[in-house]
Structures are given as structure tokens and as C-alpha cells.
Design a protein around this nucleic acid. Structure first.
Lengths: 178, 178
DNA sequence: CTCGATATATATCAATTCGATATAGAATTT
DNA sequence: AAATTCTATATCGAATTGATATATATCGAG
């Protein structure tokens, strides 16, 4: 499942430009996947060559043409074929948790701010998810929205209850202060 | 925070070969980061050139020499400098959740098996984490272990309670059966 | 006892992805 | 009035992924 396939998937929700596809990755797909312009634009070019999408340029006054992509029948068939495959294992990449793994090498103030920021980011995450959660269209969106909220909330609760474990184990402030 | 820096971090736990570093990524670091041999070996070569690690070859009978790496003083200083930086935002990549996002395009049997497998993988995750959780050395490891268990358990609970939302919204079996 | 699978151990390579940068006007905020 | 953010596309070097190659040991199943 590469970015190219995912772009195709996003186009099943409706015609979009590359810019709007990026928004979709940041929005409804943010729980599951991410991609930047550096992968999206080349992916759309490849999909166009393969005739899995068609492209029409919408002229805009004093802005670059907006290229609007539509999925084709063969594109839709290809996408369905792809999502029927057994999904690969989940991947998590958290620099914040990685930092906490080395809390014994850092001053307590540092750990505290990492934990604070992590909780804050989970909180914002929940807010932006919950925002739409009710009025979201499909059942699958509601399901995934609720999933995100539940899991992030569990993470916050755990952190608040157990942060003392790592905040007391750090090096004394004076020894690592630069 | 690249693989190279993370390899350096793992070496603060003790001398290791590239192979053992891979095991560390799969074990104690699995909650936070992952890396394959294709990134680890080049990273170790680069670190050696930079003199952030030193390398001794342990001859083994009828096996390739085991190259054991040790972190140097400058390496340790560099690593500490790196983890003091503000961590980048978390990233999640789940093909399974992505698939569920398109449940309206798939037969119910397909969704059921994706959910089943996802729960199973979270379960195995919890088991392998809990296994060590008690006897783990440092506070930070206990903290992160507990974090992983808590969050995965919340994910399982949510899935079991809400899976019906997506399992009833799918296409009728006959329409998408290949 | 042998066959296949898994573990130890390193390494490379093409394809993909990331992250930064460039361009440029509109709209909004300070 | 200035600064920042938003819309919109695109490229490019660097990093990462995932597959593959090589070679032997070990362990369980039939």
C-alpha cells in the first residue's frame, strides 16, 4: 500500500487536486497514514500515465492552474484489488516516546516538557477528531474517529497517572545542564 | 532523529552488533521506532567514519565476523545533544485502519477478518510487552511498557464494542465477490 | 534422520518516501 | 502596513524501505 494507491483511494471520495488530497491525508486519513507533496505529486503523475486517473486543468485567475483529478473505472478496480490484500503490520514512530526511553540521560525539566507537549498534542488530536465525529457522514468515519479519540484519551490518562515514574529517575539538574 | 542517531542511542545500553541493534528495535524500541538492516548497516558505517562509534571484529568459526560496536565519548555527547531537541510529531501508519476507512467498498467478510487480525496483533503486542514488564530494569522501560499495554488494550476494547458499525455497512457479499 | 523453517550475521540496491526549498498571489491577522 | 497563513504546484537530494543475496547453525516435525 503506497502513496499512489492511497491517492487513488482518496479520489473515490470525489474529484480532488493534489492540494486537496494533502488535506485529506491531514484530515480523515490522519489516523492511518500520512504523505507529503513530494510523494503526492509524483504519484498523481504516475497514476495519470497508467490511466487510473484522468486530469482536467481548471484555469484560475492569477494562480497556477488547479489540476483536478478523477478516478477512472480501471483505477477504481485496481484500488479495490489492492485494499483486498492483507494489510501490512502497523507502524508507529514517535520521537517523543523515543526521547522518554532515554530519560535517565536527561534532566528532569526536559522530560517534563516532553510529557507536557505529548499530552498537549494528544489533546489537540482529540479535539480535531471530536469536532467532526458527530456530523461525520459514513459509519466507517465515525468508527475511526471514535477509535482515535478513545486511544488518545487512554494515552493521556496513562501519562498523567504514571509520569512520576520517569520524572523522578532523571539525572540531577546540575549534572547535565549545558 | 534518524536511524543513525537511534543506533547511537541503543549503543548507550551496551556494545552491540548490527544484528543485535535490529533486535533492540524490535524489542525495547518497538513502541517508538523501527528500522531495518538496510538503514542500520549504512548508519553504523557512517557513525564509524564520524568516530561516534568504534568497531571491533569478533571472529567466529564459519560465520561472518561479528562486528561489535561501542559508543565513543564524542558519540555519547552527540547523542545527548540530539535527544535534547524538541521531538518531531508522532507518526502512525496503519494499513489495517486504512482498509477500514474504505469498508463501504468491501464485502463484510473482508472487514471482519481485518478487524480480527488487528485485534490479534494488538493482543500479541500486549503479550510480548507484558512478558518483560515486571522484570524490566529501568523505570523508563516500565513506563513505556505500561503505556504500550494500556493503549493497545484500549484499542482492543473499542474495536470489540464498535466493530458492528463497520461490519454492517459493507457491500452485500455477492456484489463484490470475485 | 532428513527436510524445511527459523536464527545468526552482514551487506547491497532499486524504488519509494521524506523534508526542505522554490514560486507566487490572496487572504487574514497583528 | 507588515507579517503570517492559505491556496496551489513542483522539484530534488537525502534517507528509508523492502527485497534479495550469501552462508552456516540449530531445532522441530514427520
Amino acid at each position: 500500500m503506497d502513496v499512489r494507491t492511497l491517492c487513488l483511494g482518496i479520489l473515490t471520495f470525489g474529484d480532488s487536486s493534489g492540494y486537496e488530497i494533502k488535506k485529506a491525508f491531514e484530515g480523515r486519513l490522519s489516523l492511518a497514514y500520512d504523505a507529503g507533496f513530494g510523494s503526492i505529486y509524483p504519484a498523481l503523475n504516475k497514476l495519470t500515465k497508467e490511466e487510473f486517473v484522468s486530469c482536467r486543468a481548471e484555469a484560475q485567475s492569477k494562480r497556477p492552474d488547479k489540476k483536478v483529478y478523477s478516478i477512472t473505472k480501471t483505477g477504481r478496480a485496481f484500488f479495490i484489488e489492492q485494499i483486498k490484500k492483507t494489510p501490512a503490520a502497523d507502524k508507529y514512530r514517535s520521537e517523543a516516546l523515543t526521547t522518554l526511553m532515554f530519560s535517565h540521560m536527561l534532566p528532569a525539566s526536559n522530560i517534563t516538557s516532553v510529557v507536557d507537549e505529548l499530552i498537549k498534542s494528544y489533546d489537540q488530536n482529540i479535539k480535531s477528531l471530536a469536532e467532526g465525529c458527530d456530523m461525520k457522514q459514513s459509519q466507517s468515519e465515525k468508527f475511526l474517529c471514535g477509535f482515535g479519540v478513545t486511544v488518545r484519551q487512554a494515552a493521556i490518562d496513562y501519562m498523567q497517572e504514571n509520569r512520576h515514574l520517569i520524572e523522578t529517575e532523571t539525572l540531577p539538574e546540575q549534572r547535565t545542564a549545558s
